[in-house]
Design a protein around this nucleic acid. Structure first.
Lengths: 288, 288
DNA sequence: TAACGTTTGTATTTTTTGTTACAGGATTGC
DNA sequence: GCAATCCTGTAACAAAAAATACAAACGTTA
């Protein structure tokens, strides 16, 4: 990153002439906003004439006043985009204006968290963080997307993550490889698809540890699951909501990432290197 | 203290015309720096003409561009001079039990809804409910799961829903079929994958209406999108959160379902009949 | 004290920028 | 399908601001 102009001005204060220093002081007093107006405004604030401002800027090494302003702007821009400042710059509170669906969605997530059994959550996270186990993820018609999402993240922080997807016939191929050291995470909500249930039961019979994310304890898989995380899914709509399920998924992802933080880090770095080596100019450049 | 201009723009987003909204988006994407350059720079960044910027500013109630800039400057000035007043978390109501990630997730959804431009949401829903259009859904590395989820639901309530997925080479096959009557919904958050952006741009060039669900106005696709729905994604974790994106997706799904409720109903019935006729004893009975 | 060099403001020029008028084009309503 | 309205961009115009030239003021040194 570029060194801040502020420091340079402070250091080089001696080089300036008397009036130029006045300009510098005015700028430092209200940095960097003073420099973002017009030359005339700057000059008036500093109590000097316009040309002095221009000479001051020129001495700093800028070809013109516009370049000087551009520098200030990009500097400020970077500063504002830094995660710390971002939260402070643009927040005000407002409340939702009563849309029942929105209210319910927010409420579902809050209630889900409020009633989430922490022990279950923690132990499932610990199991998922165990790299000696292979993690299998499975979802139903709609929740398959959640399984996929979770898999995509877990795959980055640990090896041996499998998303059970595609043709059901292929599921069997996964099943034969599963054993007592492995773990299966199932997303299963109402309509409890028979094939999902059956797969989970078969896995359990083979000694696989089963984790279940479901609506309120209803899924038949709950009987065989070692860890159950229930979520609120009811919304004023023909559908069930998956937002709370997604929230739980993110708890798991964040938990696993944190659990083995150092290993995650090295693994992420390695992946990045791999990606760069694999397609330095980004894959898909030939797409269009 | 003066209320931040940022919020006013967000709330009044519906009042603006289509191109004025592009100007607003550009400003929100890089607030407030984008407004501190020249009109021409602003216009170019937003992809509109200078007069549109002036009209945008005028509609906000400023006599001239200079006044607008002055407002931005003083706002930022106060911001920078306030000694971190707000930076220390002044999280409002009842935190769940102190888990910062859970708190933030709930808050993100609430804030996302609070600042969601209702007009944008409604018009996007109306477009997605139009069965004469073909709906394409596209997501990035992680958000692909959301595109998939949304597609799975929309497919039930309306025909012609396509999830753009799989090998990028195949994307082109989708692209040639897309035209002005169609609509592309893109989920795109930080890291803004180049291939996603490129696909959206290509689609836009062919006249496709583009809807964008993104983190706070940052995606480059925002320039070409007709409708933008911003979500909060920041969480105390190395990852960005997709929970709020999921919440928005469910708003869209519910909205479209309600929009053409009667047609959805008949369609769902027809699908159910089809399924029963196709495999009366449930598919997958031969799985185990 | 006089002369020189530096510094600084005034006045002027030149460039940039904001603004406005107008016409083509899209969209909406009848 | 047509008319009326509302958008939107192009281009000309006017205002301003940046840049420059020049001369007065100041300080410094001989």
């Amino acid at each position: 990153m570029i060194p801040p102009l502020l420091d340079e001005i402070r250091e080089r204060l001696d080089e300036f002439t008397a009036t130029e220093r006045k300009a510098a002081h005015a700028l430092l007093a209200n940095y960097p906003m003073q420099g973002l107006g017009t030359v005339a405004q700057f000059a008036q604030a500093a109590g000097v004439s316009s040309p002095t401002i221009l000479r001051f800027v020129a001495r700093l090494g800028f070809p013109g006043f516009a370049d000087f302003q551009a520098r200030l702007r990009t500097e400020l821009e970077n500063q504002l985009n830094s995660p710390l400042a971002r939260s402070t710059v643009m927040e005000t509170d407002a409340s939702i204006d009563g849309d029942p669906l929105m209210d319910k969605l927010v409420d579902n997530v809050r209630e889900t968290f409020a009633h989430l059994p922490r022990g279950e959550l923690q132990s499932l996270i610990r199991i998922l963080a165990d790299e000696k186990r292979t993690v299998y993820l499975l979802g139903g018609r709609f929740t398959d997307a959640l399984a996929r999402y979770t898999a995509a993240h877990l795959r980055i922080v640990r090896p041996n993550v499998v998303h059970v997807a595609g043709q059901q016939g292929n599921w069997l191929d996964q099943l034969i490889g599963m054993g007592p050291k492995d773990v299966l995470v199932v997303f299963d909500i109402r309509r409890y698809q028979a094939e999902i249930v059956r797969f989970a039961e078969a896995a359990a019979r083979q000694g696989v540890t089963v984790g279940l994310i479901t609506d309120s304890w209803q899924s038949p898989i709950g009987r065989i699951a070692a860890h159950v995380l229930p979520a609120r899914v009811a919304v004023p709509s023909p559908w069930d909501s998956s937002t709370a399920l997604m929230a739980i998924a993110e708890l798991l992802i964040a938990g696993v990432t944190q659990e083995n933080a150092e290993r995650s880090q090295t693994r992420m770095k390695a992946l990045e290197d791999l990606r760069n080596a694999y397609d330095p100019k980004r894959a898909g450049d030939d797409l269009l």
